[in-house]
Write a protein that binds this DNA or RNA. Structure first.
Lengths: 245, 245
DNA sequence: CGGCCACGAACTGTCAACAATTTTTGGAGA
DNA sequence: TCTCCAAAAATTGTTGACAGTTCGTGGCCG
């Protein structure tokens, strides 16, 4: 929580409030403290953080650009809700970018990085045995992140987490199916092999398919949900237009 | 130019100033009115647009997020300069995304859209004959845009132009080599064929390679420049780490 | 003549206030 | 009791002002 108790002076000027507020709101969204569709009350938030509305508005404007908030004229900022169509779109984009990351990484990945990925795979195996879904989820994210970092493409390293964050705004969480963890980690192992051998084409293909497989699993959970939970109604047929491959 | 002369009332409230300012700054950057590295003076800009600094700051904060501006504490906002490394990184990202666009588009592209692409290719041929580099440049951009639109991936349609805009911040413009126009349009024809046949894999591969070919041409112009214009010094060896394919 | 420091101007970061708009509340009428 | 409407409250969009920082200038000292 942001407190200015330790700094009664008017303006610290050693750091701007805006990035702090931005990260704070991101955190609130991440933890579910702010849930999709809810309105961000500028005054309340400013009061709670002990600052005025100006910096809060700037932070919200920044968050609007990266897709975490949306604005309505004279009504302020709202936490974005990601539709099923958008979530599926994001999977396709992530697939393309992740494939690119693999193509780049395979050419320049270091042995240290390879060892790191190997360790993560081992820990994921352990999490599968436990079974510990939460830990697997974290490790899986870290594996993806490290692959992107290995690409040494700074723009990609910057862009990829934004897409992940936006995907997390999809209304239903916990998209990791217990049964799919083993399959997923097998894919990780194949990816590691391709990276180790410096096979750019294979790495790109495997990583792209890894995300698209995730998309397929995601689609399946959606269908399951709409079957068991009839209140939500049938799936929008538009979703089926996004063909895989 | 934004003027409020027609609206002397204090607050119109039929639209927020922020998006208008944002687009105005984008335009100024696009036309080169604001060039890379220059400082964005909030007071001056606000005065010129006839509004106060608040909305200007919000617009700048938004532009910071999409990579057109950067901020320094107590020094304000500056027009970003895109380094050679970043430009090359952007080419790789665009290649991956463009390939994704092609994979998606091939499955659902309409005959109307195909006809539109075909016409653009024809016009580009004419521009090559003229020769009219500026027109070719515009048509080429439009061709790329239409392929992305054909993917029907809204997030991609939103994301792709941002990357284009950022690439335009690279310090040297006019990266279209006269000699490469014909090659480039030949690639367009192959892409159109793949799309017409609904061949997702071929379309993805061709589009990805089309951008990577652009990256290769880009690299060549850099080398030419550094050879003829020795004052800039030799290329940073890091650039060579981004291997193609 | 050159470097250093102090002073003033310019500018940023933040705040408090105001007007316009939206939302809520309360009650009158059917 | 429910619906509709008007007034009050709450909230946003914008503004002008203030404090602190950075930048530029000129004088002083070596």
């Amino acid at each position: 929580m942001l407190r200015r108790a330790a700094n009664p002076a008017r303006t610290p000027r050693t750091a701007s409030f805006v990035p702090l507020i931005q990260r704070e709101i991101e955190r609130m969204i991440g933890t579910g403290e702010l849930t999709g569709g809810t309105r961000v009350n500028e005054s309340t938030l400013a009061l709670r953080l002990g600052i005025s509305r100006g910096p809060v508005r700037e932070a919200c404007r920044a968050l609007e650009q990266i897709g975490l908030l949306r604005s309505e004229l004279n009504r302020g900022f709202f936490v974005r809700e990601v539709s099923t169509k958008e979530a599926l779109d994001l999977y396709d984009i992530r697939a393309g970018l992740f494939g690119t990351a693999g193509r780049l990484a395979a050419a320049i990945v270091t042995t240290v990085q390879l060892r790191g990925l190997e360790e993560l795979i081992g820990e994921m195996d352990a999490a599968i045995e436990a079974p510990d879904i939460a830990t697997f989820y974290t490790l899986n994210n870290e594996f993806h992140r490290q692959v992107v970092v290995a690409s040494d493409n700074d723009k990609l390293i910057e862009l990829y987490p934004l897409l992940e964050a936006e995907l997390h705004l999809f209304r239903r969480r916990g998209l990791v199916l217990p049964g799919s963890m083993r399959t997923s980690n097998d894919e990780h192992k194949a990816i590691l092999d391709a990276l180790r051998q410096g096979d750019c084409t294979a790495a790109a293909r495997l990583l792209e398919r890894h995300i698209l497989a995730g998309k397929a699993r995601f689609l399946r959970t959606l269908e399951d949900d709409s079957a068991t939970d009839a209140r939500r109604g049938p799936l929008d047929p538009r979703h089926l237009r996004s063909k895989d491959r």
